[in-house]
């Protein structure tokens, strides 16, 4: 659907060159929700703008539905843009138009007949749940409602692709959840491919199928969300994951643990089905030792379980070693060095 082939984008600001995007290779398949995560300044915003030709690459090629965007004339670019809806962090609604006027705007640009526009606008407002706000102006709406208008407007021309520029970053957590559910609905009901950028890991965790992590203009890691979440390769990825999932207790709690003569801690990671099996209980019972869960969580990622537990064992040293060995065959288990914490 969207292919980045060795894409680079360099801005020249005064005499300084800024490499916003470097040698990016990515493929976004039809029907996917693909998330790009990175800290601010990582280049994700520029990468996103290459898809609808708001920016042009300095090297490499961006293909959308098999068409190299660089080969298009301005009038063709404008046609392609109508197949790609875009929503923004700050909504970018037209203040001089009502909610209905904003949603109608792209249809007017596309020269749809007036009666048809009216019908389509009603349909879209119903879809985003804002039928009663049609005559309101943007300043009368809450942030979440504004983004709903943004989404309705982006969907007006029935695009194949929706690109989201930090669409939930200006919203509170509740509203963020609301908008994310709406995006999921857009993806499911209309089969629209979604490419989003964010700096919030929970956005990726809640709706994305695939993820790419960007740093300094480069894609440093990419793949399925579950795999990336459960076995991140890169330090930056780990940092993002830690933002939604604390994997160590706070230093003061660890201190307390040590003062009470705490034992060796192990981290156990369950993925998928094993998370729902009573593995831990079965193995410890078999080896006649006790298990103590010190810290941890079980999460759902892409409809799969992911458990990350910190445990200690009580009992004979030899039996503990045997139990750990057996557990190691079923789940991921490792000793945790807490002396630095």
């Amino acid at each position: 659907m969207i292919t980045f082939k060795d894409v680079s984008k360099t801005f020249t600001i005064g005499k300084r060159e800024v490499h916003a995007v470097r040698n990016v290779n990515l493929t976004i398949e039809e029907g996917e929700i693909f998330g790009i995560i990175g800290f601010s300044g990582a280049g994700k915003s520029t990468l996103l703008r290459l898809v609808n030709v708001l920016e042009n690459p300095t090297a490499g090629a961006v293909e959308v539905q098999g068409v190299d965007l660089a080969s298009l004339r301005p009038t063709e670019v404008r046609k392609v843009r109508r197949r790609i809806g875009m929503i923004f962090q700050n909504f970018n609604l037209l203040t001089s138009r009502t909610v209905a006027g904003n949603v109608a705007y792209p249809l007017k640009l596309a020269k749809m007949p007036r009666a048809k526009i009216k019908e389509r606008v009603e349909e879209l407002l119903r879809f985003v749940g804002l039928s009663d706000k049609a005559k309101d102006y943007p300043e009368q709406l809450s942030g979440g409602q504004k983004q709903r208008v943004g989404i309705a407007r982006a969907l007006a021309t029935s695009p194949d692709i929706l690109i989201c520029d930090e669409a939930t970053s200006a919203l509170d957590p509740d509203t963020t959840g609301e908008i994310l559910r709406l995006l999921k609905k857009v993806n499911k009901e209309f089969g629209i491919t979604i490419l989003l950028i964010t700096h919030e890991m929970h956005v990726i965790q809640s709706i994305c199928d695939k993820v790419a992590v960007m740093e300094d203009g480069e894609v440093i890691e990419s793949g399925g969300v579950f795999d990336t979440f459960t076995s991140p390769a890169h330090q930056t990825t780990k940092r993002f994951i830690r933002s939604v999932q604390q994997d160590l207790p706070s230093p003061s709690l660890l201190d307390e643990w040590r003062q009470k003569g705490g034992k060796q801690l192990y981290r156990i990671i369950f993925k998928g089905e094993v998370a729902s099996d009573p593995v831990l209980s079965r193995v410890t019972r078999k080896h006649d030792i006790d298990v103590n869960i010190v810290y941890g969580s079980v999460q759902e990622i892409q409809a799969k379980f992911y458990g990350n537990l910190l445990v200690s064992f009580d009992g004979d040293v030899g039996k503990t070693a045997n139990a750990v060995e057996e557990l190691n065959e079923i789940v991921q288990i490792e000793e945790v060095d807490v002396t630095w914490a």
């Binding site: 109508r82 790609i84 875009m86 700050n90 970018n92 203040t95 792209p106 640009l109 407007r153």
Partner: peptide
Amino acid sequence: DPGVIEAAKAMGASPLQ
């Protein structure tokens, strides 16, 4: 707001539009 102009561009508006 330049964002509004960018949004219009993204929706396929020509410079004249």
